[in-house]
């Protein structure tokens, strides 16, 4: 692995998180932000920095990281650089789960209902994809199945929106569909954190198997990989991590494709060594995208998921066009 990769990504991570504290719709001079960060300054400044800007930036960061690591792991498992939670319909199904529980008011039962229903949606989608992956011969087919699933989840979501009882729940649903980290607090992150940590731990624990799959399933089994366990671990890991990310920010696509794609050439194209740098880069990208969302002088704030798709979808097309025809 290129030696400077991880340190520079760490530095970049801290830099964008700090930058997110300094930039925003309310102009604040550097000294004011600095004193608020270290616990001094005016009470209003402290609120803006500690309760609005920093939690929002952290939310964008962990969501970006979780989605990018999930993408890198799915790409390793399915041996396809186009595999990603968004493209495979996992985020869409997870946001459908979240929307569903919002629509039927299930979220009033417990604070855990929202993250759990997003995770249930994500797990169902990853399990379906992995089951399909065993049966089909060409991985491109799998992408098509994912695209179909994403469309289906989108259609069900539109159906729920059609029947939305009032404009408030409609705008709530649009938030989940398009993805945003506006007004997210530390408690939103804390609620999703256990699931995200469990999912990511599972992915990191089985990352050596992702390297083994470079050889193809048969040879990977030959060198000692337990294929069934590997599949289960990646399904459960990406389901948990993606579901938790969606529980925080709704459906944000393409981060899982862009970050690993940029990182891979710097890690010897090894899926295992790509996981951590992909995560850091995914976090950085999403925080930057969110800063852009906040700074753009639009009348109503752009949704983060929209910006991610505006950058990510062309990247997806570009990667697909450059791929050689052996998938």
């Amino acid at each position: 692995m290129t030696r400077w990769l991880l340190p520079s990504l760490l530095v970049a991570s801290i830099a964008v998180l700090l930058a997110a504290c300094f930039l925003g719709s309310t102009p604040m001079a550097v000294p004011r932000v600095l004193s608020a960060l270290v616990g001094g300054g005016a009470a209003g400044d402290a609120i803006i920095v500690w309760q609005i800007r920093l939690p929002r930036a952290l939310a964008a960061y962990v969501v970006g990281a979780a989605l990018a690591i999930s993408g890198a792991a799915l790409q390793g498992l399915l041996r396809n650089p186009l595999a990603e939670p968004g493209v495979l319909g996992v985020t869409a199904t997870a946001s459908l789960g979240a929307t569903f529980s919002l629509y039927y008011g299930l979220t009033a039962l417990s604070v855990w209902v929202l993250p759990l229903s997003a995770i249930a949606g994500a797990l169902a989608a990853t399990a379906f994809i992995a089951m399909a992956a065993i049966r089909i011969r060409h991985m491109v087919t799998l992408i098509l199945i994912g695209v179909g699933m994403a469309s289906f989840a989108g259609a069900l979501m539109s159906l729920l929106m059609n029947f939305a009882p009032n404009p408030f729940s409609l705008s709530d649903m649009i938030n989940w569909m398009l993805g945003s980290v506006a007004n997210r607090g530390l408690d939103d992150i804390a609620l999703a954190a256990p699931f995200m940590i469990a999912g990511l731990a599972l992915l990191f624990a089985t990352k050596r198997g992702l390297s083994a799959l470079t050889l193809g399933e048969e040879a990977a089994h030959g060198i000692g990989l337990d294929l069934r366990r590997q599949r289960l671990a990646v399904i459960a890991g990406t389901g948990l991590a993606t579901g938790a990310a969606v529980a925080i920010a709704g459906g944000i696509g393409f981060i899982g494709i862009v970050a690993p794609h940029l990182v891979r050439p710097l890690t010897g194209h090894d899926p295992a060594r790509s996981l951590l740098p992909s995560g850091l880069l995914g976090g950085v990208i999403l925080v930057l995208a969110d800063i852009a969302v906040r700074l753009l002088p639009t009348t109503s704030e752009l949704k983060l998921g929209v910006v991610a798709a505006l950058i990510g979808a062309p990247a997806f097309v570009w990667i697909a066009m450059r791929r050689r025809a052996h998938g």
Binding site: T214, L215, G216, E218, A219, I223, G224, H269
Partner: peptide
Amino acid sequence: AYLPQIRPLAWPATVRDVVALGRYA
């Protein structure tokens, strides 16, 4: 050791890394 019929590698890994996968077990 099992050497199945050779299929294309999923990623353009380096020669040393592919050989190193032999040490997976």
